[in-house]
Computed example of a mutant assay.
Amino acid sequence: MEMSEVTAKLIEAKNRKRATYQDLAEAVGRNKTWVAAVIQGQASMDEKEADALINYLEVPYEEIKHELVAVPYKGSLSEDVPTDPLIYRFHEITQVYGTTLKEIIHEEFGDGIMSAIDFKMDVEREEDPKGDRVVVTLNGKFLPYTKW
């Protein structure tokens, strides 16, 4: 079974159960954003985590477990500019503020990168009288470039 099919089955089961990603995170014992990344095929679970998710969602076990524990092929978007408005905004953020982030990170840490491997991400709601706000936290280890 292809990961796209696994994603569709898991989302269908999540919707059928009326579960949130927070519910899934509690069942698995991980962060909601990480669990969503697994379901989208961008991270992998260990056997225990996969069992917990499968049992919670009551989905056919062997059909999907292999894909949940396999090392994924990362990168869910084509190289074209995304057309989904929400994903496009993140593309826009990096287009407009990417060089700014690069300058600040290099000034604060030196020549290097923010890891996307030793990395955590979270999405929260911040209530605001003018309209609720989306708070996205990207937390990656700094990796300096080595000299040789």
Rank of each mutant, 00 (worst) to 15 (best):
K32N: 09
K32C: 05
T33N: 11
W34V: 11
W34A: 13
V35N: 10
V35K: 08
A36H: 10
A36M: 14
A37W: 06
V38E: 12
V38K: 04
V38Y: 03
I39F: 03
Q40A: 15
G41V: 08
Q42E: 15
A43L: 11
A43Q: 15
S44D: 12
M45I: 11
D46L: 05
E47I: 04
E47H: 07
E47R: 10
K48V: 10
E49T: 05
E49I: 03
A50D: 04
A50Q: 08
A50G: 05
D51K: 06
D51L: 01
D51G: 01
A52T: 00
L53E: 03
I54D: 02
N55L: 07
N55R: 14
Y56L: 05
E58H: 08
Y61I: 07
E63Y: 00
I64F: 04
K65N: 05
H66A: 12
H66T: 11
H66L: 06
E67Y: 12
E67C: 11
L68D: 11
L68C: 11
L68R: 09
L68I: 10
V69S: 12
V69N: 09
A70Y: 01
V71H: 09
V71S: 13
P72S: 12
P72F: 07
Y73W: 09
K74V: 15
G75W: 08
G75D: 13
G75H: 10
S76T: 04
S76F: 12
S78F: 13
S78A: 13
S78D: 15
V81L: 13
V81W: 08
P82Q: 07
P82E: 08
T83Q: 14
D84Q: 14
L86V: 14
L86Y: 08
L86A: 08
I87Q: 12
Y88L: 14
Y88D: 05
R89K: 12
H91M: 06
E92Y: 01
Q95C: 01
V96R: 09
G98L: 01
G98D: 00
T99L: 11
T99P: 01
T100V: 11
L101N: 01
L101K: 06
K102G: 01
E103H: 01
E103Q: 00
I104N: 06
I104M: 00
I104E: 03
I104F: 01
I105T: 00
E107Y: 12
E108T: 02
F109M: 13
F109Q: 07
D111Q: 01
G112E: 06
G112C: 03
G112N: 02
I113K: 03
I113V: 09
M114E: 03
I117W: 02
F119C: 06
F119T: 08
K120V: 02
M121R: 12
D122F: 00
E124S: 14
E124K: 15
R125Y: 10
R125F: 05
E126F: 02
E126R: 15
D128N: 15
P129K: 15
K130E: 15
G131W: 13
G131F: 13
D132R: 11
D132I: 01
D132M: 07
R133T: 08
V134T: 14
V134E: 13
V136T: 14
V136F: 09
T137Y: 02
L138E: 13
N139W: 00
K141C: 07
K141F: 11
F142L: 09
L143C: 05
P144G: 10
